[in-house]
């Protein structure tokens, strides 16, 4: 995936960095290569950090935090939830929608 970018990135003065550390560091610093080029903070999974073990579809307060105005489920990149958590949230939202606890869409 990053095969295309790596040489160019290394050329920008990242000597002696391991292949693993490179990606992490890059996220903290500004994005190189002229793509994006703005500061981007690394998002962390809200559910993991708050230690929510079971995402309940009845807990609308929690689910509404993941639903913007249009009531659509947003992709993972918007919230930074980890894959297992996003899956849990998704199923919970679908269930809550079916039981009319959460709207499918707003006008």
């Amino acid at each position: 995936m990053s095969d295309m970018e790596t040489p160019e990135y290394r050329g920008r003065g990242g000597e002696g960095r391991g292949p693993g550390g490179e990606r992490g560091e890059r996220k903290d610093k500004e994005k190189g290569g002229g793509k994006g080029g703005f500061f981007r903070r690394r998002k962390t999974c809200k559910l993991c950090s708050e230690k929510v073990d079971y995402v309940d579809y009845k807990n609308t307060k929690l689910l509404l935090a993941f639903i913007p105005e249009r009531a659509k489920i947003l992709p993972r990149r918007m919230f930074g939830t980890c894959a297992p958590c996003q899956r849990k949230v998704r199923t919970a939202i679908l269930r809550a929608r079916q039981m009319a606890l959460i709207p499918y869409s707003t006008e």
Binding site: R97, A100, L101, I102, P103, Y104
Partner: peptide, 11 residues
């Protein structure tokens, strides 16, 4: 209800 089901607005 978050949306009407049939003619029901409440349940």
């Amino acid at each position: 209800l978050a949306y009407p089901i049939g003619k029901n607005r409440e349940g």
